[in-house]
Structures are given as C-alpha cells and as structure tokens.
Computed example of a mutant assay.
Amino acid sequence: MPQAEQFEPRAGRLRSRAGRLLWALPPVALLAVFFLHPLYLVVQQSFRPDTGGTSLRPYADVLASTAFREALWTTVWLAMASTAGCLVLGFVLALVIAFVPFPGAKTVARFVDVFLSFPSFLITLALLFVYGTVGMANGAWTDVTGAAEGPFRFLTTPWGVLLAEVTYFTPFVMRPLLAAFSQLDTAQLEAASSLGARAPRIVRQVILPEALPALAAGGSLVLVLCLNEFGIVLFTGAKGVTTLPMLVYSKAILESDYPGACVIAVVNVLISVGLYGLYRVVSRRAGA
C-alpha cells in the first residue's frame, strides 16, 4: 500500500477531531466566562479576610461559629425530611395515577410535567394565600367563630417550610416513577392477582422492587434541590429557620461580610456537587 494512502485515514481522523474541538470551544468559553470565572472569584474571596492578604481565617471563623452549625443542621434535617415526605407522597400519587383507572389520569400525568416548570416561590405564595395569617383558612375560621385571629400559623415555622418543600418537590419524584411504571410488565400484576395476591402485597413484592431505582434517582435529585432551596424559606418568612443559602444572603446583604458569605457558599457548593455526583450514579444505574 502506498505511504500516502496509509496517512489518509489518519489525516481524516485528525481533521475530524480538530473539527469537534473547534465546535466545543464556544460553549466552553461561555461556561468559563459566565460560570467558572464567577465561581473562581467566590473561592478566591473566601480566602481573603477583611484585614487583607490571603488566609484560612475566614474558614476558621465561619466553621467555628454557632450560626453556621445551626444553619447546616437546619439545612440537612429540612432537606432529609422533605426528601422523605416527597418519596412517600410521590410514590402513593404515582401509584394512583399509573394503576388506578379514573377519568383524566393522563391529564394529571401531563400536569406533573407542567408543574416541574413552576418557580418555587409561586407554590409558597399559593400556600400563603390559603394558610397565611390573613389567608383563606384563617378568614373562614374567623367568619364562622367570630374569633379575632385564626389558628393556622404553621407557615412561619419549620413545618411550613417543610410543607412547602414537599408540595413543590414531590413531582420531581413522581416523574421518574411514572416513567418506570409505564415500562412495568402488566403481565406480572395480572399473574400476581390471579394467584390471589391482594393489592398491598402486589405493591410490596412486584411494584416496589421495580420502582426502587426510580425512587433513588428522584430522591437524590430532591435532596440536592432542597439543600439549595432559597425562595421557599425566604417567602414563608419562617422565624428561626436559617439554612445555608439564607445564611449566605444574610452574611452578604445584611452584614456585608463577603468573605464569610463566600466561605458558606463554597461549603454549600461542595455538598451539592458531592450529592449531585451521587445522583448521577444512581440515575445511571436506574437508566434515567
């Protein structure tokens, strides 16, 4: 074979690789300018105390503070409790939509997709209209009983934040579950039913094992989102509920402590990236 013909395939591969790299440059450049550079500035500022120079003092001060430890604990328990609530409620609702025949089931399933596009503060505002201090529930109570105030005041407590997060993030669990249920072989359900298995046993022994990967994927995603949720906590106005994103806001905007705010932001990013990596692993194994 002539030497020129041997180099032609290699030259073609090099041109193809160069073309792919050329097409990749614009998005990489945009990512570097609008995301990586600001993130670099945040990390850089976290090592620069107000006294000047470069030091680990901002990390030592923030990590040793009571406010940070309390915010971290509040963030973790709220995220875990919200995730647990979303898993239970999402599984039950997805079961009803997928396996209980009723008019409009497909419409409800489509609405789940639409719900995912709603901003979190919109759901919080809706809950405030219903259960807020001057909301519909308290208004109905005062109209009926003549009392000066209604009894529903839980929205300004951690339970209100928990309710809002479960309400908003449950569809993020339902979506992968509905996709998994749509691929479930109905012959298994019919065989189990014909053998005398009742609905709870069918759910426990047939449906739940098939749903576990989707539950794990949806739960991992919800956990990451809840750890970074800011709008719900802010709009509920819950007293004494300070999460890591709220602490970043407080340090930067209210106290003008930018190194402290950047330290908390870096910690939050590290936790989120770690959990996102876990979510990707779980999603890949679930085939999502």
Rank of each mutant, 00 (worst) to 15 (best):
L244C: 05
L93V: 13
V203I: 13
A187I: 10
A4E: 14
A192C: 07
E229H: 04
Q6Y: 13
S65L: 05
G85Y: 01
A148S: 12
A288E: 14
Q3E: 15
W159C: 04
T133P: 09
A79S: 12
E165T: 11
V100W: 11
I264H: 02
I264D: 03
G53R: 06
V134N: 15
F91K: 01
V266L: 10
G53E: 07
A4Q: 13
V206W: 02
A147K: 03
S250H: 13
F129P: 00
R10F: 15
G12L: 12
P245N: 08
P27D: 11
G146K: 07
R175T: 03
V263F: 03
L125N: 08
F47G: 05
V112H: 01
A191D: 08
V224R: 00
G277T: 07
A105Q: 10
P213W: 04
V166H: 00
W77M: 08
R175K: 13
L270R: 07
M246V: 12
R153Y: 08
W141Q: 03
S220R: 01
G53F: 08
Q188L: 15
L227W: 02
P245V: 04
P27E: 10
T167W: 03
Y131A: 02
S250P: 06
L275T: 05
R280E: 14
L223T: 02
P2G: 13
D113T: 10
R48K: 14
R13A: 14
G52S: 05
I232K: 00
L95W: 12
R285A: 11
A197W: 07
P158G: 04
F235C: 09
V282Q: 06
E229W: 04
T107G: 15
G277V: 05
T51P: 02
L162C: 08
L72G: 04
L21G: 15
R20Y: 14
M1R: 13
A84Y: 06
V28Q: 11
Q188A: 11
L212H: 10
V130Q: 06
L163Y: 02
P49R: 05
I253R: 14
V134S: 15
V248L: 07
R175G: 01
T186W: 11
S82T: 09
G150N: 02
A148W: 10
L128C: 03
S283A: 15
A105I: 07
L234C: 08
V173K: 01
L36Y: 11
A252G: 11
S120M: 02
P151L: 03
T142R: 09
A60Q: 14
T133K: 10
I232Y: 00
L208H: 09
